[in-house]
């Protein structure tokens, strides 16, 4: 006996129509429709799509509650071994629908689910809640996506343990899985480097977190009238580190008054940073926070004024969320103090 699968697709993949038919309400058909056939082929009789549920992308987006209610009622009655949706590639509403209907089936009916889409599809926001195969951004990737989804689906239905995301082709979902690499780390690193140097594709084993962007502010019009503040992640603090800023993973920042201070000297200032050799910064803290030069420029009238407070923390293993919080807070202080521009130094 083969495993029974219910497949969810949109109006486009059911060949009902494109955007002009995106309003169609959910309907249920026996057997595979569209991409379901490719899944059946890949399963070679071990599993089969018994029912296909089709729903217009706009209908799902605009009547999410009704659509979910109807689909959940059908899936409950059919009680399949797996509910599979898509793949949606880079179709935004379709991806949203696939991810959300999968989540509802999984959470409310306790049935295993799987979907697939492009990693930048808005539906992929749920990748830590719903198992998703990473696909290309267009339906041209179906030939590759269908077998990957089919293989992963079979594993789920058989109750087999999943491999790592890079082995089984799903999007990293925050669950760590150990496995043995075929080659040791140094070999992999050198290969990666050679590919990079040769301009060939390579895959990092430690993707950097993605950062958002803020558009640049207009330039300072007249420096000679501007108040400029110094800030640093290099850990410059008054000697003795009075606020106990941690040498790594800092939990707070410091605000220090430099009114009348013409030069940062080793008897009054030092660094609290534990992530670089502190000898040079301790010898002359101006090497990190250039108070001496700023005072000269102030005296010469090149800048209006050096702000009397500087803000400092230790950027050593400090969480992005903490750094964001510190700076968001002191930026407001700088703003209300009438500071026109900031020089941030990092080590």
């Amino acid at each position: 006996m083969s495993f029974r699968v219910v497949h969810y697709i949109n109006q486009f993949f059911a060949q009902i129509g494109g955007e002009e038919m995106a309003h169609v309400a959910p309907e249920k058909r026996e057997g595979p429709v569209g991409p379901g056939a490719a899944l059946n082929t890949a399963w070679k009789g071990e599993a089969e799509v018994v029912t296909t549920i089709i729903c217009g992308d706009s209908y799902f987006a605009e009547h999410e509650k009704d659509a979910k209610e109807q689909i959940l009622a059908w899936v409950k009655e059919l009680n399949p071994d797996l509910f599979i949706a898509g793949p949606a590639f880079n179709a935004g509403r379709y991806g949203y629908a696939c991810a959300n209907i999968c989540k509802a089936v999984q959470d409310e009916l306790g049935i295993k689910v799987l979907t697939g889409m492009y990693e930048e599809n808005p539906g992929a926001d749920l990748k830590e809640k719903v198992l998703m195969v990473a696909t290309t951004n267009s339906a041209a990737g179906m030939r590759k996506a269908a077998p990957t989804m089919a293989a992963l689906a079979l594993k789920l239905m058989k109750g087999e343990e999943l491999g790592a995301s890079c082995e089984d082709g799903y999007m990293p979902n925050g669950v760590r899985r150990n496995f043995f690499e075929k080659e040791r780390g140094s070999t992999r690193a050198v290969k990666m480097l050679l590919n990079k140097l040769a301009g060939k594709p390579f895959t990092t084993e430690y993707p950097m977190p993605s950062f958002d962007r803020v558009p640049p502010n207009p330039a300072v019009k007249d420096l000679s009238k501007a108040t400029i503040a110094l800030c640093t992640s290099g850990g410059i603090v008054p000697k003795g580190n009075p606020d106990h800023i941690e040498s790594s993973s800092a939990s707070h920042y410091g605000e220090y008054d430099i009114t009348g201070v013409m030069d940062l000297t080793s008897d009054k200032y030092e660094t609290a940073h534990g992530g670089y050799d502190p000898v040079y910064a301790n010898e002359d803290p101006d090497r990190v926070l250039p108070v001496d030069v700023m005072r000269d420029l102030e005296k010469e009238g090149k800048i209006g004024k050096l702000h009397n407070l500087f803000y400092t923390t230790v950027g050593n293993g400090t969480a992005v969320a903490s750094a964001k919080k510190f700076a968001a807070e002191y930026a407001q202080k700088l703003l209300s103090a009438g500071v026109d521009a900031v020089i941030m130094t990092s080590t």
Binding site: F211, D212, R213, V214, P215, P216, N217, P218, A219, V220, C231, S233, T313, G315, A323, K324, F326, A327, A328, A331, Q332, L334, L335, V339, D340, A341, V342, I343, M344, T345, S346, T347
Partner: peptide, 19 residues
């Protein structure tokens, strides 16, 4: 941190070694 300062509306320059 530079981004939060920028977001607040203050122009900011980042001086650092690892650009």
């Amino acid at each position: 941190m530079v981004k939060e300062i920028e977001r607040a509306g203050i122009p900011v320059v980042h001086m650092c070694t690892v650009t």
